[in-house]
Amino acid sequence: MSLPDVWFVLIAVLWTGYFFLEGFDFGVGILTKLLARNEPERRVLINTIGPVWDGNEVWLLTAGGATFAAFPDWYATLFSGFYFPLLAILVCLILRVVAFEYRAKRDDAAWKRNWEAVIFWTSLLPAFLWGVAFANIVHGVPIDQQKNFTGNLLTLLNPYALLGGCTTLALFTFHGSLFTALKTLGGIRERARTTATWSGLVTAVLALAFLLWTQADRGDNWSLVTLLLAVAGLLAALGCNLGGREGWAFICSGVTVVAAVATLFLALFPDVMPSTTDPAFSLTVSNAASAHYSLTIMTWVAGFATPLVLLYQGWTYWVFRRRIGVQHIPTTAH
């Protein structure tokens, strides 16, 4: 395995980690409107992800940073080509962060309602847009010989990409419902399980359609294996949820996220951004990669830093492992 291949795998792992982790916290953000019936319940939901959402976002930064350093041409084509969708995602992530922080800083119903609306929309929109972005990356976009994206915003909003967006949106809502069921107490826990059932069924339909389309478009034998694993995980998650096994249900929906992202990256390899203009113009693992020296340094840094990050993030989840119910929400403003 050459160093660029190693970095392709590492970037895939970073994105997988990001979607596994931020996937459920996007889902919880969406559930603040769908599931919570009153203010204390909304606070319960927000507090389940309160200590962890920022750590989850680190995975996005490292995925973006690793792409920049390991595949500068991929980064350049992707970020200038998908300018507006990525701008929208960035604005959402900025607003979402401050919404969590500011919401409880004033004891004023209108203030809280506004920030809650921000939390809902800035969770929903990126959950959808990431699917759109990845579907386009995997299927390919118009790229010319100079590795420049030649399409426009409408090129990106094609049926396959929109299906990808709906899939990630449904999948993250499902994943978030199972996380909520695992992390809460009382009525909200019961309702989270109900929400998980219907959002899981919607996800099953969308994900099957999207993954089969991906498989038909660019799949190989390996992506077929992960596709089947994703479907199995989804069905198992639904079953465990119905059987009241919340921990297992969450693990299984996690398997679905991991296997689905793996399917996308396996379908993509050895390209990193296929060209629909001419396959010869595609960006590949070899023609978009950095110099060997850069990759060697990065491999050493990643080798030492990644276990450390995993350790302290795992520790955060351990410290905040207890379930939360409305009785834990303080009555004062902060």
Binding site: I46, N47, G50, F100, R103, G325, H328, I329, H334
Partner: peptide, 9 residues
């Protein structure tokens, strides 16, 4: 177990 959180978002 049912004590309110010292800090809540």
């Amino acid at each position: 177990a049912d004590k309110p959180l010292a800090f809540a978002y």
